[in-house]
Design a protein around this nucleic acid. Sequence first.
RNA 1: GGCCGCGUACCCAAGUGGACUAAGGGGACGGAUUGCAAAUCCGUUAUUCGCCGGUUCGAAUCCGGCCGCGGCCUCCA
Length: 502
Amino acid sequence: MSLRVYNTLSQEKELFEPVRPGKVGIYLCGPTVYKPSHIGHAVGPIIFDTIKRYLVYKGFDVTWVVNITDVDDKLIVESKAQGTTVYELADRITAGYLEAIRQLGVTSIDHLPKASEHIPEIIDMCRRLIDKGAAYVSGGDVYFDVSADTDYGKLSHRKPEEQQAGTRELASGEKRNPGDFALWKASKPDEPPEVQFDSPWGKGRPGWHIECSAMSVKYLGETFDIHGGGMDLMFPHHENEIAQSETCFDKPFAKYWLHNGLTRFNTKKISKSDQEMARKMGELTLTHLLSKHSPELLRYFIISTHYRRPIEFSDEEIAAKKKGLDTFYRLFERIERACRQDPYQDGPTLEQAFSSTENHADQSFIRECLDHQLRFLEAMDDDFNTGGAVGSLFEMATTINRFIDEWRLETEENPRGRDLAMAAVQTLRSLARILGLFDQRPPRAATTDHLVDDLMDVLIALRAEARKAKQYTLADLVRDRLKAVGISLEDRPGGTVWRRES
RNA sequence: GGCCGCGUACCCAAGUGGACUAAGGGGACGGAUUGCAAAUCCGUUAUUCGCCGGUUCGAAUCCGGCCGCGGCCUCCA
Protein backbone atom coordinates (compact mmCIF):
# COMPACT_ATOMS: atom_id res chain seq x y z
CA MET A 1 0.00 0.00 0.00
CA SER A 2 1.25 3.44 -0.78
CA LEU A 3 0.54 6.75 0.85
CA ARG A 4 -0.91 9.58 -1.16
CA VAL A 5 -1.18 13.15 0.12
CA TYR A 6 -2.95 16.23 -1.19
CA ASN A 7 -0.39 18.91 -1.99
CA THR A 8 -1.58 22.51 -2.06
CA LEU A 9 1.28 23.32 -4.46
CA SER A 10 -0.01 21.02 -7.20
CA GLN A 11 -3.63 21.04 -6.03
CA GLU A 12 -3.80 17.27 -6.33
CA LYS A 13 -3.05 14.07 -4.48
CA GLU A 14 0.50 12.90 -4.98
CA LEU A 15 2.37 9.74 -4.11
CA PHE A 16 4.31 10.42 -0.93
CA GLU A 17 8.04 9.96 -1.43
CA PRO A 18 10.29 11.59 1.16
CA VAL A 19 13.26 13.68 0.08
CA ARG A 20 15.61 11.33 1.94
CA PRO A 21 14.52 7.68 1.85
CA GLY A 22 13.13 6.51 5.16
CA LYS A 23 13.27 9.94 6.79
CA VAL A 24 10.54 12.56 7.03
CA GLY A 25 10.80 16.16 8.21
CA ILE A 26 7.61 18.00 9.18
CA TYR A 27 7.24 21.68 10.03
CA LEU A 28 3.96 22.96 11.41
CA CYS A 29 3.21 26.64 11.98
CA GLY A 30 2.39 27.01 15.65
CA PRO A 31 0.74 29.88 17.45
CA THR A 32 1.68 33.48 17.98
CA VAL A 33 1.47 33.48 21.75
CA TYR A 34 -0.35 36.68 22.65
CA LYS A 35 -3.75 35.41 23.75
CA PRO A 36 -5.17 32.14 25.13
CA SER A 37 -5.35 29.32 22.58
CA HIS A 38 -8.74 28.38 21.17
CA ILE A 39 -10.08 25.13 19.72
CA GLY A 40 -8.82 26.10 16.26
CA HIS A 41 -5.25 26.11 17.54
CA ALA A 42 -5.60 22.45 18.48
CA VAL A 43 -6.54 21.22 15.02
CA GLY A 44 -3.07 21.47 13.48
CA PRO A 45 -1.24 19.82 16.39
CA ILE A 46 -3.78 16.98 16.61
CA ILE A 47 -3.80 16.30 12.88
CA PHE A 48 -0.04 16.43 12.53
CA ASP A 49 0.46 14.36 15.65
CA THR A 50 -1.75 11.76 13.95
CA ILE A 51 0.16 12.13 10.69
CA LYS A 52 3.43 11.59 12.50
CA ARG A 53 2.06 8.55 14.34
CA TYR A 54 0.95 7.05 11.04
CA LEU A 55 4.27 7.73 9.33
CA VAL A 56 6.09 6.15 12.27
CA TYR A 57 3.69 3.18 12.04
CA LYS A 58 4.70 2.85 8.40
CA GLY A 59 8.33 2.73 9.41
CA PHE A 60 9.55 6.26 8.69
CA ASP A 61 12.00 8.08 10.91
CA VAL A 62 10.10 11.33 11.51
CA THR A 63 11.25 14.68 12.89
CA TRP A 64 8.44 17.10 13.69
CA VAL A 65 8.94 20.78 14.46
CA VAL A 66 6.33 23.23 15.75
CA ASN A 67 7.36 26.85 16.14
CA ILE A 68 6.35 29.33 18.80
CA THR A 69 6.23 32.92 17.56
CA ASP A 70 6.96 35.04 20.60
CA VAL A 71 8.18 38.29 19.05
CA ASP A 72 5.50 40.13 17.18
CA ASP A 73 3.42 43.32 17.00
CA LYS A 74 0.51 41.65 18.75
CA LEU A 75 2.63 40.63 21.70
CA ILE A 76 3.93 44.15 22.08
CA VAL A 77 0.44 45.60 22.09
CA GLU A 78 -1.01 42.98 24.41
CA SER A 79 1.84 43.01 26.93
CA LYS A 80 1.51 46.78 27.20
CA ALA A 81 -2.22 46.47 27.73
CA GLN A 82 -1.63 43.97 30.51
CA GLY A 83 1.21 45.97 32.02
CA THR A 84 3.70 43.17 31.70
CA THR A 85 6.68 42.23 29.56
CA VAL A 86 6.55 40.55 26.20
CA TYR A 87 8.28 37.46 27.57
CA GLU A 88 6.14 37.13 30.66
CA LEU A 89 3.08 37.19 28.39
CA ALA A 90 4.67 34.82 25.86
CA ASP A 91 5.76 32.34 28.52
CA ARG A 92 2.35 32.32 30.18
CA ILE A 93 0.45 31.80 26.92
CA THR A 94 2.96 29.22 25.68
CA ALA A 95 2.65 27.22 28.89
CA GLY A 96 -1.14 27.17 28.52
CA TYR A 97 -0.90 26.09 24.92
CA LEU A 98 1.58 23.30 25.61
CA GLU A 99 -0.39 22.00 28.56
CA ALA A 100 -3.58 21.94 26.47
CA ILE A 101 -2.10 20.06 23.53
CA ARG A 102 -0.33 17.65 25.90
CA GLN A 103 -3.70 16.80 27.41
CA LEU A 104 -5.04 16.33 23.90
CA GLY A 105 -2.48 13.61 23.36
CA VAL A 106 -0.08 15.62 21.21
CA THR A 107 3.07 13.95 22.44
CA SER A 108 5.22 13.51 19.37
CA ILE A 109 6.65 16.99 18.75
CA ASP A 110 10.45 16.83 18.53
CA HIS A 111 11.35 20.53 18.57
CA LEU A 112 9.47 23.62 19.76
CA PRO A 113 11.74 26.46 18.70
CA LYS A 114 10.97 30.04 19.72
CA ALA A 115 11.57 32.98 17.42
CA SER A 116 13.20 34.96 20.23
CA GLU A 117 15.86 32.28 20.62
CA HIS A 118 16.82 32.29 16.94
CA ILE A 119 17.66 35.94 16.34
CA PRO A 120 21.21 35.21 15.05
CA GLU A 121 19.87 32.69 12.53
CA ILE A 122 17.23 35.18 11.41
CA ILE A 123 19.74 38.00 11.02
CA ASP A 124 22.02 35.68 9.09
CA MET A 125 19.27 34.83 6.67
CA CYS A 126 18.37 38.49 6.15
CA ARG A 127 22.01 39.23 5.42
CA ARG A 128 22.24 36.45 2.87
CA LEU A 129 19.15 37.72 1.10
CA ILE A 130 20.54 41.26 1.01
CA ASP A 131 23.84 39.95 -0.36
CA LYS A 132 21.97 38.13 -3.08
CA GLY A 133 20.15 41.31 -4.05
CA ALA A 134 16.78 39.84 -3.10
CA ALA A 135 16.27 42.13 -0.11
CA TYR A 136 17.00 45.76 0.61
CA VAL A 137 17.44 47.99 3.64
CA SER A 138 15.20 50.99 4.05
CA GLY A 139 15.30 53.16 7.15
CA GLY A 140 16.39 50.33 9.45
CA ASP A 141 13.80 47.94 7.98
CA VAL A 142 14.76 45.08 5.71
CA TYR A 143 12.31 44.16 2.96
CA PHE A 144 12.14 41.17 0.70
CA ASP A 145 11.90 42.20 -2.93
CA VAL A 146 9.08 40.10 -4.31
CA SER A 147 10.17 40.78 -7.87
CA ALA A 148 13.35 38.82 -7.12
CA ASP A 149 11.29 35.66 -6.88
CA THR A 150 10.12 34.73 -10.34
CA ASP A 151 7.56 32.15 -9.31
CA TYR A 152 6.12 34.13 -6.39
CA GLY A 153 2.49 33.14 -5.83
CA LYS A 154 2.83 29.50 -6.83
CA LEU A 155 1.43 28.16 -3.56
CA SER A 156 -1.67 30.32 -3.25
CA HIS A 157 -2.05 30.47 -7.04
CA ARG A 158 -2.30 34.20 -7.28
CA LYS A 159 -0.30 36.95 -8.88
CA PRO A 160 0.69 39.88 -6.67
CA GLU A 161 -0.20 42.47 -9.30
CA GLU A 162 -3.75 41.18 -9.50
CA GLN A 163 -4.42 41.67 -5.81
CA GLN A 164 -6.07 44.72 -4.32
CA ALA A 165 -2.69 46.01 -3.35
CA GLY A 166 -3.77 49.61 -3.12
CA THR A 167 -5.87 49.01 -0.03
CA ARG A 168 -2.82 48.23 2.04
CA GLU A 169 -1.49 51.51 3.37
CA LEU A 170 0.78 50.41 6.24
CA ALA A 171 3.58 52.72 7.35
CA SER A 172 5.63 51.62 4.44
CA GLY A 173 6.34 54.48 2.13
CA GLU A 174 9.77 52.92 2.05
CA LYS A 175 8.72 49.79 0.20
CA ARG A 176 9.64 49.54 -3.44
CA ASN A 177 6.62 47.39 -4.16
CA PRO A 178 3.38 47.06 -2.25
CA GLY A 179 3.86 43.26 -2.25
CA ASP A 180 7.28 43.45 -0.59
CA PHE A 181 7.26 42.26 2.99
CA ALA A 182 9.38 42.98 6.05
CA LEU A 183 12.12 40.53 6.99
CA TRP A 184 13.31 42.81 9.77
CA LYS A 185 11.52 45.71 11.42
CA ALA A 186 13.37 48.68 12.95
CA SER A 187 12.48 49.28 16.61
CA LYS A 188 10.26 52.21 17.39
CA PRO A 189 11.19 54.32 20.41
CA ASP A 190 8.22 53.22 22.51
CA GLU A 191 8.77 49.51 22.03
CA PRO A 192 9.83 47.40 25.04
CA PRO A 193 13.60 46.95 25.37
CA GLU A 194 13.30 43.16 25.48
CA VAL A 195 12.28 43.09 21.82
CA GLN A 196 14.96 45.46 20.61
CA PHE A 197 17.69 43.29 19.17
CA ASP A 198 21.02 44.47 17.79
CA SER A 199 21.47 43.96 14.09
CA PRO A 200 23.65 45.28 11.28
CA TRP A 201 20.73 47.64 10.49
CA GLY A 202 20.32 48.98 14.02
CA LYS A 203 17.95 47.90 16.78
CA GLY A 204 15.03 45.89 15.54
CA ARG A 205 13.08 42.66 15.53
CA PRO A 206 12.12 39.93 13.04
CA GLY A 207 9.26 40.30 10.58
CA TRP A 208 6.46 37.81 10.75
CA HIS A 209 7.51 35.15 8.23
CA ILE A 210 11.26 34.93 8.57
CA GLU A 211 11.36 32.92 11.79
CA CYS A 212 9.75 29.93 10.11
CA SER A 213 12.28 29.93 7.30
CA ALA A 214 15.22 30.33 9.67
CA MET A 215 14.07 27.71 12.14
CA SER A 216 12.98 25.10 9.62
CA VAL A 217 16.41 25.22 7.98
CA LYS A 218 18.06 24.77 11.32
CA TYR A 219 16.07 21.74 12.39
CA LEU A 220 15.05 20.12 9.10
CA GLY A 221 17.48 21.35 6.46
CA GLU A 222 17.14 23.53 3.39
CA THR A 223 14.71 21.09 1.78
CA PHE A 224 12.29 19.03 3.82
CA ASP A 225 9.15 16.98 3.29
CA ILE A 226 5.96 18.34 4.81
CA HIS A 227 4.99 21.87 5.76
CA GLY A 228 1.64 22.32 7.42
CA GLY A 229 -0.63 24.96 8.84
CA GLY A 230 -4.12 26.37 8.72
CA MET A 231 -5.57 27.33 5.37
CA ASP A 232 -5.58 30.96 6.41
CA LEU A 233 -1.78 30.90 6.45
CA MET A 234 -1.42 29.98 2.79
CA PHE A 235 -1.16 33.61 1.84
CA PRO A 236 0.83 35.58 2.61
CA HIS A 237 2.63 33.63 5.34
CA HIS A 238 3.53 30.40 3.57
CA GLU A 239 3.95 32.08 0.24
CA ASN A 240 6.53 34.38 1.81
CA GLU A 241 8.32 31.53 3.53
CA ILE A 242 8.76 29.85 0.16
CA ALA A 243 9.98 33.08 -1.44
CA GLN A 244 12.58 33.71 1.28
CA SER A 245 13.86 30.19 1.62
CA GLU A 246 14.04 29.23 -2.02
CA THR A 247 15.66 32.53 -2.94
CA CYS A 248 18.14 32.19 -0.09
CA PHE A 249 19.22 28.60 -0.69
CA ASP A 250 18.39 28.08 -4.37
CA LYS A 251 16.70 24.83 -3.47
CA PRO A 252 13.11 23.70 -3.21
CA PHE A 253 11.72 24.45 0.26
CA ALA A 254 8.98 22.04 1.42
CA LYS A 255 7.99 19.22 -0.95
CA TYR A 256 4.41 18.77 0.27
CA TRP A 257 2.17 21.53 1.64
CA LEU A 258 -0.71 20.32 3.80
CA HIS A 259 -3.32 22.81 4.91
CA ASN A 260 -5.96 22.01 7.49
CA GLY A 261 -9.48 23.45 7.34
CA LEU A 262 -10.54 26.12 9.79
CA THR A 263 -12.78 25.55 12.75
CA ARG A 264 -15.96 27.56 12.63
CA PHE A 265 -18.63 28.66 14.97
CA ASN A 266 -21.96 29.79 13.54
CA THR A 267 -20.38 29.32 10.11
CA LYS A 268 -17.71 31.91 10.88
CA LYS A 269 -14.05 31.22 11.42
CA ILE A 270 -13.15 31.06 15.09
CA SER A 271 -10.84 33.95 16.01
CA LYS A 272 -12.56 36.27 13.60
CA SER A 273 -12.74 39.58 15.36
CA ASP A 274 -16.38 40.53 15.18
CA GLN A 275 -18.56 41.17 18.22
CA GLU A 276 -20.42 37.89 18.17
CA MET A 277 -17.17 35.97 18.09
CA ALA A 278 -15.61 38.13 20.76
CA ARG A 279 -18.49 37.25 23.04
CA LYS A 280 -18.07 33.55 22.31
CA MET A 281 -14.28 33.36 22.45
CA GLY A 282 -14.07 32.64 26.16
CA GLU A 283 -16.08 29.47 25.68
CA LEU A 284 -14.00 28.34 22.72
CA THR A 285 -10.77 28.58 24.59
CA LEU A 286 -8.91 25.29 25.03
CA THR A 287 -8.70 25.70 28.79
CA HIS A 288 -12.44 26.16 29.03
CA LEU A 289 -13.30 23.32 26.66
CA LEU A 290 -10.98 20.95 28.51
CA SER A 291 -12.78 21.77 31.73
CA LYS A 292 -16.07 20.75 30.11
CA HIS A 293 -15.11 17.78 27.93
CA SER A 294 -12.61 14.97 28.12
CA PRO A 295 -9.47 15.50 26.02
CA GLU A 296 -10.16 12.25 24.23
CA LEU A 297 -13.59 13.51 23.17
CA LEU A 298 -12.15 16.76 21.81
CA ARG A 299 -9.46 14.85 19.94
CA TYR A 300 -11.99 12.40 18.58
CA PHE A 301 -14.22 15.30 17.50
CA ILE A 302 -11.40 16.78 15.44
CA ILE A 303 -10.14 13.47 14.09
CA SER A 304 -13.52 12.23 12.93
CA THR A 305 -13.51 14.65 9.99
CA HIS A 306 -10.95 14.81 7.20
CA TYR A 307 -8.35 17.44 8.08
CA ARG A 308 -8.92 19.60 5.03
CA ARG A 309 -12.60 20.02 5.68
CA PRO A 310 -13.80 22.90 7.85
CA ILE A 311 -15.27 21.82 11.20
CA GLU A 312 -18.35 23.43 12.65
CA PHE A 313 -18.01 23.55 16.41
CA SER A 314 -21.15 23.23 18.50
CA ASP A 315 -22.25 21.73 21.78
CA GLU A 316 -24.82 19.60 19.95
CA GLU A 317 -22.21 18.03 17.72
CA ILE A 318 -19.88 17.40 20.66
CA ALA A 319 -22.72 15.64 22.47
CA ALA A 320 -23.46 13.45 19.44
CA LYS A 321 -19.79 12.54 19.12
CA LYS A 322 -19.66 11.64 22.80
CA LYS A 323 -22.28 8.96 22.27
CA GLY A 324 -20.18 7.49 19.52
CA LEU A 325 -17.10 7.36 21.74
CA ASP A 326 -19.12 5.64 24.46
CA THR A 327 -19.61 2.70 22.10
CA PHE A 328 -15.91 1.94 22.41
CA TYR A 329 -15.74 2.55 26.14
CA ARG A 330 -18.66 0.15 26.63
CA LEU A 331 -17.01 -2.47 24.46
CA PHE A 332 -13.84 -2.22 26.56
CA GLU A 333 -15.84 -2.55 29.78
CA ARG A 334 -17.69 -5.52 28.38
CA ILE A 335 -14.46 -7.24 27.39
CA GLU A 336 -13.02 -6.55 30.78
CA ARG A 337 -15.98 -8.23 32.49
CA ALA A 338 -16.01 -11.18 30.11
CA CYS A 339 -12.28 -11.80 30.07
CA ARG A 340 -11.46 -10.52 33.55
CA GLN A 341 -8.46 -8.81 32.00
CA ASP A 342 -7.54 -5.15 31.59
CA PRO A 343 -8.13 -4.25 27.94
CA TYR A 344 -5.88 -1.20 28.34
CA GLN A 345 -3.01 -3.54 29.11
CA ASP A 346 -1.23 -4.23 25.83
CA GLY A 347 -1.53 -7.81 24.64
CA PRO A 348 -1.18 -9.78 21.42
CA THR A 349 -3.28 -8.69 18.45
CA LEU A 350 -5.16 -11.11 16.22
CA GLU A 351 -2.31 -11.24 13.76
CA GLN A 352 0.19 -11.92 16.50
CA ALA A 353 -1.83 -14.59 18.30
CA PHE A 354 -3.98 -16.30 15.69
CA SER A 355 -2.23 -15.93 12.35
CA SER A 356 -2.70 -19.59 11.44
CA THR A 357 -5.79 -21.04 13.03
CA GLU A 358 -7.52 -24.14 11.67
CA ASN A 359 -10.89 -23.54 13.26
CA HIS A 360 -13.43 -22.45 10.69
CA ALA A 361 -15.60 -20.41 13.06
CA ASP A 362 -12.51 -18.55 14.27
CA GLN A 363 -11.42 -17.89 10.72
CA SER A 364 -14.45 -15.90 9.67
CA PHE A 365 -14.26 -13.71 12.77
CA ILE A 366 -10.54 -13.11 12.32
CA ARG A 367 -10.92 -12.44 8.63
CA GLU A 368 -13.69 -9.95 9.28
CA CYS A 369 -11.60 -8.05 11.82
CA LEU A 370 -8.55 -8.03 9.59
CA ASP A 371 -10.70 -6.78 6.76
CA HIS A 372 -11.70 -3.79 8.88
CA GLN A 373 -8.04 -3.28 9.72
CA LEU A 374 -7.21 -3.21 6.03
CA ARG A 375 -9.91 -0.61 5.41
CA PHE A 376 -8.52 1.48 8.23
CA LEU A 377 -5.05 1.44 6.71
CA GLU A 378 -6.35 2.14 3.23
CA ALA A 379 -8.20 5.18 4.54
CA MET A 380 -5.08 6.48 6.27
CA ASP A 381 -3.07 5.93 3.09
CA ASP A 382 -5.53 8.13 1.25
CA ASP A 383 -4.39 11.55 2.44
CA PHE A 384 -4.77 10.62 6.12
CA ASN A 385 -8.52 10.08 5.87
CA THR A 386 -9.13 9.84 9.59
CA GLY A 387 -12.91 10.06 9.14
CA GLY A 388 -12.96 6.93 7.03
CA ALA A 389 -10.55 5.24 9.43
CA VAL A 390 -12.84 5.94 12.38
CA GLY A 391 -15.70 4.35 10.45
CA SER A 392 -13.81 1.08 10.17
CA LEU A 393 -13.14 1.13 13.93
CA PHE A 394 -16.89 1.29 14.53
CA GLU A 395 -17.39 -1.65 12.22
CA MET A 396 -14.74 -3.60 14.07
CA ALA A 397 -16.46 -2.80 17.37
CA THR A 398 -19.75 -4.15 16.03
CA THR A 399 -18.02 -7.31 14.81
CA ILE A 400 -16.51 -7.90 18.26
CA ASN A 401 -19.79 -7.19 20.06
CA ARG A 402 -21.56 -9.66 17.81
CA PHE A 403 -18.89 -12.26 18.54
CA ILE A 404 -19.35 -11.77 22.29
CA ASP A 405 -23.12 -12.13 21.85
CA GLU A 406 -22.97 -15.24 19.68
CA TRP A 407 -20.40 -17.04 21.80
CA ARG A 408 -22.09 -15.90 25.06
CA LEU A 409 -18.70 -14.93 26.40
CA GLU A 410 -20.17 -13.03 29.34
CA THR A 411 -21.81 -16.08 30.88
CA GLU A 412 -20.12 -19.18 29.51
CA GLU A 413 -16.58 -20.33 30.15
CA ASN A 414 -14.78 -20.30 26.83
CA PRO A 415 -11.09 -19.54 27.12
CA ARG A 416 -10.43 -19.67 23.43
CA GLY A 417 -13.34 -17.36 22.61
CA ARG A 418 -12.18 -14.92 25.25
CA ASP A 419 -8.63 -14.94 23.90
CA LEU A 420 -9.96 -14.24 20.43
CA ALA A 421 -12.16 -11.38 21.61
CA MET A 422 -9.34 -9.85 23.64
CA ALA A 423 -6.93 -10.14 20.73
CA ALA A 424 -9.50 -8.43 18.49
CA VAL A 425 -9.80 -5.57 20.98
CA GLN A 426 -6.02 -5.28 21.00
CA THR A 427 -6.07 -5.10 17.21
CA LEU A 428 -8.63 -2.31 17.43
CA ARG A 429 -6.55 -0.46 20.00
CA SER A 430 -3.37 -0.83 17.96
CA LEU A 431 -5.11 1.07 15.16
CA ALA A 432 -6.89 3.58 17.39
CA ARG A 433 -3.55 4.50 18.90
CA ILE A 434 -2.45 5.81 15.51
CA LEU A 435 -5.26 8.32 15.92
CA GLY A 436 -4.17 8.95 19.50
CA LEU A 437 -7.23 7.24 20.98
CA PHE A 438 -7.72 4.55 23.64
CA ASP A 439 -4.11 4.43 24.68
CA GLN A 440 -5.05 4.66 28.33
CA ARG A 441 -8.12 4.06 30.41
CA PRO A 442 -10.02 7.34 30.64
CA PRO A 443 -10.00 8.70 34.18
CA ARG A 444 -13.26 8.04 36.00
CA ALA A 445 -15.58 11.00 35.73
CA ALA A 446 -16.79 10.48 39.28
CA THR A 447 -15.04 10.81 42.56
CA THR A 448 -12.96 7.75 43.33
CA ASP A 449 -14.51 7.51 46.75
CA HIS A 450 -14.80 3.85 47.72
CA LEU A 451 -17.76 4.69 49.86
CA VAL A 452 -19.73 5.33 46.67
CA ASP A 453 -18.74 1.92 45.33
CA ASP A 454 -19.77 0.26 48.58
CA LEU A 455 -23.09 2.07 48.73
CA MET A 456 -23.85 1.12 45.15
CA ASP A 457 -23.13 -2.50 45.98
CA VAL A 458 -25.66 -2.28 48.82
CA LEU A 459 -28.32 -0.70 46.60
CA ILE A 460 -27.77 -3.22 43.82
CA ALA A 461 -27.95 -6.13 46.29
CA LEU A 462 -31.19 -4.81 47.79
CA ARG A 463 -32.67 -4.29 44.35
CA ALA A 464 -31.66 -7.83 43.36
CA GLU A 465 -33.60 -9.13 46.35
CA ALA A 466 -36.63 -7.12 45.30
CA ARG A 467 -36.38 -8.48 41.76
CA LYS A 468 -36.07 -12.02 43.04
CA ALA A 469 -39.28 -11.45 45.00
CA LYS A 470 -40.85 -9.98 41.85
CA GLN A 471 -41.30 -6.62 43.58
CA TYR A 472 -40.71 -4.81 40.33
CA THR A 473 -42.27 -1.53 41.40
CA LEU A 474 -39.66 -1.23 44.12
CA ALA A 475 -36.83 -2.39 41.83
CA ASP A 476 -37.82 0.13 39.17
CA LEU A 477 -38.12 2.88 41.75
CA VAL A 478 -34.50 2.33 42.76
CA ARG A 479 -33.40 2.40 39.15
CA ASP A 480 -35.41 5.54 38.35
CA ARG A 481 -34.21 7.40 41.41
CA LEU A 482 -30.60 6.56 40.61
CA LYS A 483 -31.13 7.66 37.02
CA ALA A 484 -32.35 11.00 38.34
CA VAL A 485 -29.07 11.55 40.17
CA GLY A 486 -27.04 10.57 37.12
CA ILE A 487 -26.40 6.88 37.72
CA SER A 488 -27.65 4.31 35.23
CA LEU A 489 -28.11 0.61 35.93
CA GLU A 490 -27.78 -2.19 33.41
CA ASP A 491 -29.04 -5.66 34.31
CA ARG A 492 -26.67 -7.77 32.26
CA PRO A 493 -26.49 -11.55 31.99
CA GLY A 494 -23.55 -11.58 34.39
CA GLY A 495 -25.14 -9.24 36.94
CA THR A 496 -26.06 -5.60 37.36
CA VAL A 497 -23.49 -2.93 36.50
CA TRP A 498 -23.76 0.76 37.16
CA ARG A 499 -22.35 3.74 35.38
CA ARG A 500 -22.18 7.38 36.23
CA GLU A 501 -23.28 9.60 33.35
CA SER A 502 -20.91 12.50 32.87
C1' G B 1 -12.66 42.73 -8.26
C1' G B 2 -8.79 38.48 -8.01
C1' C B 3 -7.45 33.66 -5.88
C1' C B 4 -9.01 29.33 -3.05
C1' G B 5 -12.31 25.89 -0.62
C1' C B 6 -17.02 23.71 0.46
C1' G B 7 -22.38 22.04 -0.86
C1' U B 8 -23.83 13.80 -0.10
C1' A B 9 -30.24 11.46 4.25
C1' C B 10 -33.51 14.80 9.74
C1' C B 11 -28.14 16.19 11.74
C1' C B 12 -22.69 15.00 11.44
C1' A B 13 -19.74 12.55 7.77
C1' A B 14 -16.72 8.80 4.17
C1' G B 15 -16.68 7.89 -0.98
C1' U B 16 -14.06 11.64 -6.26
C1' G B 17 -15.10 7.60 -13.29
C1' G B 18 -17.86 1.02 -13.35
C1' A B 19 -17.37 -4.25 -8.34
C1' C B 20 -18.74 -4.96 -3.26
C1' U B 21 -23.09 -1.47 -0.07
C1' A B 22 -23.41 5.83 -1.71
C1' A B 23 -19.05 3.65 4.58
C1' G B 24 -19.62 5.05 9.56
C1' G B 25 -21.76 7.96 13.76
C1' G B 26 -26.10 10.65 16.06
C1' G B 27 -31.49 10.64 15.84
C1' A B 28 -36.11 8.14 14.67
C1' C B 29 -38.91 3.67 13.86
C1' G B 30 -39.50 -1.87 13.89
C1' G B 31 -37.54 -6.82 15.61
C1' A B 32 -34.35 -10.22 18.86
C1' U B 33 -32.99 -10.05 24.07
C1' U B 34 -35.03 -8.25 29.03
C1' G B 35 -40.02 -8.90 34.35
C1' C B 36 -39.74 -3.83 32.23
C1' A B 37 -35.60 -1.00 30.96
C1' A B 38 -30.47 -0.11 29.71
C1' A B 39 -26.64 -2.16 26.87
C1' U B 40 -25.82 -5.36 22.63
C1' C B 41 -27.28 -7.55 17.98
C1' C B 42 -30.52 -7.57 13.42
C1' G B 43 -33.44 -4.50 10.12
C1' U B 44 -35.73 0.22 8.06
C1' U B 45 -34.62 5.57 7.27
C1' A B 46 -30.43 8.98 0.00
C1' U B 47 -33.22 4.84 -6.78
C1' U B 48 -29.88 9.56 -5.39
C1' C B 49 -25.19 13.15 -4.24
C1' G B 50 -26.88 22.24 -4.56
C1' C B 51 -29.09 23.43 -9.73
C1' C B 52 -28.65 23.22 -15.24
C1' G B 53 -26.07 21.55 -19.30
C1' G B 54 -21.82 18.69 -21.52
C1' U B 55 -17.99 14.57 -22.07
C1' U B 56 -18.45 9.07 -21.61
C1' C B 57 -20.89 2.63 -23.13
C1' G B 58 -21.05 4.42 -17.86
C1' A B 59 -20.71 10.52 -13.59
C1' A B 60 -21.86 11.92 -6.61
C1' U B 61 -16.91 11.50 -8.97
C1' C B 62 -14.40 14.73 -15.14
C1' C B 63 -15.63 19.65 -17.96
C1' G B 64 -18.61 24.35 -18.42
C1' G B 65 -22.22 27.66 -16.44
C1' C B 66 -25.30 29.15 -12.38
C1' C B 67 -26.91 29.38 -7.13
C1' G B 68 -25.71 29.16 -1.84
C1' C B 69 -22.01 29.24 2.22
C1' G B 70 -17.13 30.26 3.76
C1' G B 71 -11.73 31.62 3.63
C1' C B 72 -7.70 34.72 1.79
C1' C B 73 -5.96 39.31 -0.71
C1' U B 74 -4.69 43.52 6.46
C1' C B 75 -3.32 40.12 11.91
C1' C B 76 -4.76 34.87 11.82
C1' A B 77 -4.02 27.69 13.26
